[in-house]
Every structure is written in C-alpha cells, then in structure tokens.
C-alpha cells in the first residue's frame, strides 16, 4: 500500500469496494435515463464496456502476476463511466477496445489502482476520439435515433454563423437539457439523473463538494463574463458528468482542500476556453486530462504544510 497523504492516517473502515459500489448506485439514474432515451443500445454499450473493463483487469493481473483486484469494482466503474461518454451509435467493438485501453493501458500499465496519472475512462474516450473521430461524433437524437448535432455543437455553429450569441434557446430548451431529451453521449443527456446520483454521493460523503463546486462555478462565471448563457453551458455536454464523477476521482486529483479547489478551477477555465475558442464544441474530457497532469505539482504546494 502506497501512502500518499500526510499522517495521521485514519482508517475509516471504508474500502474501495464500498466506495465503488456507491458510485455505481449513483450512476444508476443516469443509466436508466440513457436506456429510456436511447433504447437498449445504451444498455448494450454499457454492458460491453463494463465487461471488457473487468476482463482487462483480470488479464493485467495475470500478465503482471499481481493480486487480482477485480472485486474492488473499480474496473467496472471505469467501464461504465467510459460508456457514459460514448455516443449511442458507436459500434460495440470500438467501445470494447476503448474500455480495454482505459483499463489496461491508462490504468494497469501505469501501475494499477491509485497509481495511474490520467483518469482511465477519459483516456479511453480520448483514445477513441483520436482513432475513430467520425464514429465518436455521430450523435443521434433520443427516441428516433436520427443523426443530429449536440446542443453544444449547434451552439458553436450558431455563434459562428449568426451574430446573435444568445440563440441557444431555439436549439434546446432548458427543460429538455435538464431532463435529458437532447442528443449527446449516453450519460450526459439528463442533468436531472446526474444530479440525483451526485446528491447521493455527496450525502454518502463519497465525493468532496470542492472540485465539482469550483469546476461548475468557474465555468458559470467565465461564461457569464464572456456574454454567454451560463445556465445553458452548465446543463449541456458532459460538464455535470465530468464535474461530479470524473474531476474527483481519488487517484488522479489532488489530496488537499486547496488543491481540489485549484484543480476544479483549472478544469473550469480550460473547459470554457475550449468551448469558447477551441476547435471542439466540448472540452470537459481534455480539460480534466490536462489538469490530471498538474496534480503532482498541485499536491506539492501543500507538501510541507502541517
């Protein structure tokens, strides 16, 4: 066991397995929403990712001859989180490959649970986006699976073509964004379902409120200052999913209170910059991955403080 935090170390009796089980429970509403909006294909994708993730974990344990950690459920959580950032139309084998990359390459090759630098699920998504860009940006509308643009992509085009920066409302009303009847990846459609899960995790004290708070607040403030619709930006894309389920992964984010706030702020600034000026309509994935790289530096800020 590697000790990362400064002493004293209190053992709270909470194991990785219990934490991960809580995360899975918290993801259930979003899963149900995904199945409701996108049909059984959403379930098939999630199942494929979770199974492949678990198999990759088993394979890694066998090849590297180490203790088999499959019971701690962390690989399954990675698989489910990855599935939640995929478009519903993605071929299953691509999802499986991404899931394998997430667990085997991004997690196990870097040393396994607690040693990985980058968030495995997001690394898997980045791998898929770089490799199969066309498939990864083929968004479909809920219920009838007609190909369409996501609200964010539509907004990006709208800001370019028309001077009216506030033309979002015609693309997707707040109610649709909140409930989830918009195009997007599996887990990012329904803000309501994600918030339900996040509330559960916050109540169970599985996650810290600081990273999501500073992440969401900085995006809202920057978008407001940039003259954009802040609420639209909070509700759309993978922001809520990223803020509550990925920007506070234990292994890849800072330990200290101040560090967590800085990490969230950095993610918020990067996400806003990518959304406002970047080539991609959505920047949650890359901003969290980029901030992952700064975690050792942020941790060092508080290294010698008592």
């Amino acid at each position: 066991m590697k000790i990362l935090a400064v002493s004293p170390h209190l053992h709270s009796g909470v194991t990785t397995r219990i934490l991960m089980r809580d995360v899975l429970i918290a993801l259930t509403p979003a899963f149900c929403a995904a199945v409701y909006f996108f049909g059984w294909r959403a379930a098939a994708l999630t199942l494929t990712c979770a199974t492949t993730a678990a198999l990759a974990e088993l394979l890694a344990a066998k090849i590297f001859k180490k203790e088999n950690n499959i019971q701690d459920l962390s690989a399954v959580v990675t698989g489910v989180l990855l599935a939640f950032c995929l478009p519903p139309s993605l071929p299953l084998w691509m999802a499986a490959l991404g899931s394998f990359f997430a667990v085997f390459v991004a997690k196990e090759l870097f040393g396994g649970l607690g040693c990985n630098i980058f968030n495995p699920a997001l690394s898997g998504r980045a791998f898929l986006l770089a490799s199969y860009a066309a498939y990864m940006t083929n968004w479909t509308r809920p219920f009838d699976a007609v190909t369409t643009a996501t609200p964010l992509a539509g907004a990006a085009i709208a800001t370019v073509t028309s001077a009216a920066a506030q033309s979002f409302n015609s693309l997707a009303s707040y109610k649709e964004l909140f409930l989830g009847a918009v195009a997007g990846s599996l887990g990012e459609t329904s803000a309501l379902a994600l918030l339900l899960g996040a509330a559960y995790l916050l109540l169970r004290r599985v996650i810290d409120w600081r990273e999501p708070f500073s992440y969401l607040a900085s995006v809202a403030v920057i978008m407001f200052l940039a003259g954009q619709d802040a609420l639209f930006h909070l509700l759309s894309g993978g922001l809520l999913l990223g803020a509550f389920f990925m920007a506070n992964d234990y292994a890849t984010t800072p330990m200290s209170t101040r560090g967590k706030l800085i990490f969230g702020l950095g993610c918020g600034v990067l996400t806003s910059v990518i959304r406002l000026w970047g080539g991609y309509p959505e920047g949650v994935c890359y901003s969290i991955l980029i901030m992952n790289m700064f975690v050792p530096l942020i941790d060092r800020l508080d290294e010698h403080k008592k």
Partner: peptide, 22 residues
C-alpha cells in the same frame, strides 16, 4: 477494417515507443 488512427498520430508513436521500451 476501420483504421485505428491514433497509431499514426504522434501520440500513438510516443505510446508505442514507450511500451516497446518498457
């Protein structure tokens, strides 16, 4: 076969060299 573009992109080159070295 759908090509895995990452391999011919620079990050894929870095990753591949890294894994071969490892």
């Amino acid at each position: 076969y759908v090509p895995t573009l990452l391999l011919v992109l620079p990050p894929g080159g870095f990753l591949l060299i890294g894994f071969i070295l490892a």
